[in-house]
């Protein structure tokens, strides 16, 4: 028994040391860890990364060098956890998980908008002409996840057309965008609610038609991907925070000013031809000003996607962020 206890205490000690060292290694003044996700909507980040725009902004302001570490993560939920644990100081995600994270007290706020993209609900059944045709039916709607921005947009479209926001919840099938597209094309589901660039591909197909309520409820002008930064970064390291904002702003400006150069840079990451990439970039909106974030957050609060609706935009974004 003595032996066992010794072993146990050794295990505990070992785990403790590991945890301790991991925590000790976090946050360093001359560096910043930023997470983002995959796709066209994140194009300015590829530019910022490639041109070292955040590093340049920091050096210009302070004269010191900055190390930026970019990490690609697969979901907003992962980024939320990583920011809460202090491993990341900033991240880019859909406006849905960002609002959830702010309200849940992850310890960050939105510091910039990044992009707005096209969203739409496509169907392969010509008898389905509007959302109302789906209610009460057994038609299945593929979208990326329950609680995702696409789900929230479906709820918003329902609500704006006089239906219960959750009237189609039971029709949802959670599938990744490419799987959902395959399912729609093969007839495994009858509807697919997706975003760019998948929505562009589906819109080009003759046998698919769009139910326009969703694209009307949330246009490509409205915020889709936003950047969040930890309150700690904002409060304790204003120079770095300013450099982050300036770098991203410069990247967005570059995308808008030189779409050809941007497309040439990002097409490889997105797996599109340079021509397609340029066309898709033109269909999105790249802007640092938010659009509709408060409206969406309040809708989420009123319809149970988050526990409580924020009262003002200031609860969601840092000072100096433009837009609503």
């Amino acid at each position: 028994m003595k032996k066992t206890l010794k072993l146990m205490s050794a295990l505990c000690l070992g785990t403790g040391i590991l945890l301790g060292s991991a925590i000790g290694a976090a946050a360093d003044d001359a560096s910043i860890n930023i997470a983002y996700q995959y796709g066209l909507a994140y194009a300015p980040l590829i530019v910022a990364q490639d041109q070292g725009l955040i590093e340049a902004a920091y050096e210009e302001a302070t004269g010191d060098t900055l190390t930026v570490t970019w990490t690609q993560m697969s979901s907003g939920a992962d980024i939320n956890t990583a920011i809460a644990s202090g491993d990341l100081q900033a991240g880019f995600m859909g406006v849905g998980p960002a609002v959830t994270g702010v309200v849940k007290g992850v310890g960050y706020k939105i510091f910039t908008n990044l992009s707005g993209q096209s969203h739409g609900l496509m169907t392969n059944d010509e008898n389905i002409k509007s959302l109302g045709d789906l209610i009460g039916s057994s038609n299945q709607i593929a979208l990326v996840n329950i609680g995702s921005i696409q789900h929230i947009l479906l709820a918003k479209a329902l609500s704006e057309n006089g239906f219960d926001a959750h009237a189609l919840d039971a029709n949802i099938v959670a599938m990744k965008h490419p799987d959902g597209m395959t399912a729609l094309q093969t007839g495994a589901v009858s509807c697919h609610l997706t975003s760019s660039p998948y929505i562009f591909t589906e819109r080009e197909q003759d046998d698919l038609t769009e139910l326009t309520e969703v694209s009307e409820a949330w246009t490509s002008e409205d915020s889709f991907i936003v950047g969040v930064a930890s309150e700690k970064l904002h409060d304790e390291n204003p120079d770095l925070y300013a450099a982050l904002c300036a770098g991203i702003s410069a990247a967005i400006d570059f995308v808008n000013a030189s779409p050809e150069d941007t497309a040439a840079l990002t097409c490889e990451y997105d797996g599109n031809s340079a021509e397609d990439e340029l066309e898709y970039l033109g269909l999105g909106t790249y802007s640092a000003a938010t659009s509709g974030v408060l409206e969406l957050a309040q809708f989420m609060g009123e319809n149970g996607f988050i526990d409580a609706a924020p009262a003002s935009i200031d609860e969601l974004v840092f000072d100096g962020v433009e837009g609503d």
Binding site: N145, I146, A170, N171, I172, V173, A174, M175, D179
Partner: peptide, 15 residues
């Protein structure tokens, strides 16, 4: 990965 809202299971709940 593949959540069917009409027949939601534990995995969907965790997600």
């Amino acid at each position: 990965i593949f959540g069917i809202a009409s027949c939601p299971g534990i995995g969907l709940y965790i997600n």
